[in-house]
Design a protein around this nucleic acid. Structure first.
Lengths: 240, 240
DNA sequence: CGCAATCTTGAGTGATATCAACAGGAGTGG
DNA sequence: CCACTCCTGTTGATATCACTCAAGATTGCG
């Protein structure tokens, strides 16, 4: 088992779909070999939990495929989704004692996990990786702060318009080939309740806003899990 | 002028109040000397702006003394405060093109600024500093995400209770001497409007909640800019 | 003392939450 | 193929919390 793992090690990372975008980008072969030896791939079903809020921070992970949510809740059980993790995103809390949020797969997902102790040690010895992680963390902080404006100062209409535009942008690059997949039609990887938990609303308010947008011809909803943006400019005006 | 600056260089940082807590902690004398040569101290009056949202990200800075706010606004002018910067905190966007938030001093402040290009170059050459910055950014991201729960899922009462407890905690270590300053009585460095902008509320709602807490005996308000926590446990229950 | 800025309080409104009923699909078993 | 159920989402009725608008009160300052 051990030898199979190490033999396959290089191929694993080399063939990795996010090899050039994740924090392991720009590492040399030797570094990749080490990283590979301490990382483990893991499949998750939709709905499966990768870590729980308040866990001892034992594990960190990279997303290879799929979509996951980071979330927390008030003591009376209201949930707030703190962010979504797309392929190449990093999850978990290095250099810390506990994971301050739970992580759950929204779609079937493939992640690359590391024991935090291993990861921390490797990171401290490899500034290039720490630099990549720093850039990623700074971007994530910017994105999170932008979301604070949404949560604190936008009404339901602005929130949903912003959400739809954000999703269409983030889900589009999937087919980043020459024939780029239309960003206007996409599958919603979140349920209405989860959308509500992202936007700080209730499921009923989200549903009503969807209906309103549909009746105004801004969007179409072929099914519960599909959305089509029909008047992007108008949505952009609403989102501002 | 130039020579005075470089002569005084070492002393500047060595005498710095946040020397051991800011991202420059643990740097050796030579590193400190370089950092000092590229940094400039700057005083800010309360209300003075250090950078504007959307600025080209030309400058980054460390807080030495005072309190500053990071904020952004919707296109219709509603403000959201994204965070407060206390002594030893880092502000600005290294490795990026524009500062995604404005920074304004809430009290008279002393900051240590760097041209971003200088800072970026120094950081990339000094992993220790990048590591410090990474740890700080990770903590800030955790804190920001916790605030998302407040903005998205708490009511006005929970928000203000959380705010008061947070302030009392963050302002307390000022007198971190043996005779620690009481955390229960503190000066509010924010106006009612600014508190509203932190909490995603209106000034009237904040004012009403203050009055309610005062009438319930949870807090005292000796003046507009002072608060005294009288029933901390009760506030903690409300904040959850 | 008077003015301006900030804060507080009041009254009324409105957006979103809450509670409740219903609708539509997907899966299951007869 | 059709009933049945479960789950998710939609729609309606009502309540409530926070916002808005407006008027005073307090504070600081020249």
């Amino acid at each position: 088992m051990e030898s199979i793992q190490s033999e396959a090690a290089l191929n694993f990372c080399q063939a990795c779909a996010v090899r050039n975008r994740a924090i392991c980008a720009d590492l040399d072969d030797e570094e990749i070999r080490i990283l590979n030896s301490i990382g483990r791939r893991r499949h998750l079903e939709a709905g499966e939990q990768l870590f729980w809020e308040g866990d001892e921070a034992i594990v960190v992970a990279n997303v290879i495929e799929g979509l996951l949510k980071l979330s927390t809740q008030t003591s009376d059980g209201k949930e707030q989704i703190l962010g979504l993790a797309y392929p190449s995103d990093f999850m978990g809390r290095p250099f810390g004692n506990s994971t301050p949020y739970g992580v759950e797969a929204l779609t079937p997902a493939l992640v690359c996990t590391f024991q935090r102790a291993d990861f921390d040690r490797f990171a401290r010895e490899h500034p290039k990786l720490e630099h990549n992680l720093l850039e990623r963390t700074l971007s994530e902080l910017d994105r999170t702060r932008r979301w604070m404006l949404l949560l604190g100062r936008m009404n339901a209409e602005q929130k949903l318009a912003t959400f739809l535009l954000d999703m269409s942008e983030r889900l589009a690059p999937k087919g980043c080939a020459p024939f780029e997949q239309s960003a206007d039609a996409f599958e919603l990887p979140l349920s209405r309740q989860q959308i509500a938990d992202v936007l700080g609303l209730t499921i009923e308010t989200v549903s009503r806003q969807f209906t309103k947008f549909r009746k105004q011809g801004l969007i179409d909803l072929p099914s519960r899990r599909e959305a089509v943006i029909q008047k992007r400019e108008r949505l952009e005006e609403l989102a501002q």
